Simulated scan of single mutants.
Amino acid sequence: MASVFIAYGSTTGNTAYVAESIQRTLKQNGHEVTIEDVADINVAELTKPYDLCCLGCSTWGDDEIELQDDFIPVFEEIENIDLAGKNIACFGCGDSSYEYYCGAVDAIEEACKNAGATIFTDSLKIDGDPKSEQADIDAWAQDLIAKLNA
């Protein structure tokens, strides 16, 4: 059984829905999961001894990448901590009609790599309503499980 930490920033509830779906699937498969709204944590949480940290953030903005407001303070501190040896997986919601579709996911992933983290799997990017993308969310969670069990 692996220990997984999920932190998410969600304004409209879409990214929270994705985080809760991932949590449910991981728990149903015997993994220990801690889930937090990113507004309730500080960046040091990512250094705790979890087997995997999943970070979820929605993306706003058409002219530039804008992270969900609550995620900004944690994002700004990521490169100031040591994530060497940490497994990170990123997910988020966005709108593919924007130039920087799910750009927050890419920015968070890059910051984690720069802090020494290992990217555990390809990121999950949800276009629009996550309820219509449930199969993709479930498949991504199953991929996490397969890698955690390997």
Rank of each mutant, 00 (worst) to 15 (best):
E36W: 10
V43D: 07
N114T: 11
D82P: 05
E64A: 12
E66T: 12
N29F: 03
Y98R: 05
E99C: 11
K131Q: 15
G94H: 01
G103H: 03
I108A: 08
D62V: 09
A19F: 07
G30V: 01
Y100T: 06
R24N: 14
V33F: 03
E110A: 12
E20G: 14
Y101T: 06
K125S: 09
E76H: 00
P49V: 08
I88K: 00
L55I: 14
E36I: 15
A107P: 07
L55G: 02
E133G: 11
G56L: 05
I41W: 10
S97Y: 14
P73R: 02
A39T: 14
I78G: 03
A89C: 08
A111W: 04
T47E: 10
I72F: 07
Y101S: 12
D63V: 13
T34R: 10
S123Y: 09
K113L: 15
L124D: 06
P49F: 02
A117M: 00
V105E: 02
C54K: 01
C57G: 07
C102L: 04
I119T: 02
A117D: 02
V38N: 00
Q23C: 08
I126Q: 01
D127Y: 00
D62H: 13
T121G: 12
K125H: 07
K113D: 06
N42D: 15
V33M: 04
Y17D: 11
D129T: 00
L26H: 00
A135C: 11
T25D: 10
A115Q: 08
A84D: 15
W60H: 11
I35V: 06
K27T: 14
C93A: 09
A111S: 07
Q68T: 07
Q134A: 01
V74W: 05
E133F: 11
I81Y: 04
T121R: 13
T25A: 14
N80I: 13
S123K: 06
C57T: 13
K27A: 12
V105F: 06
D127M: 02
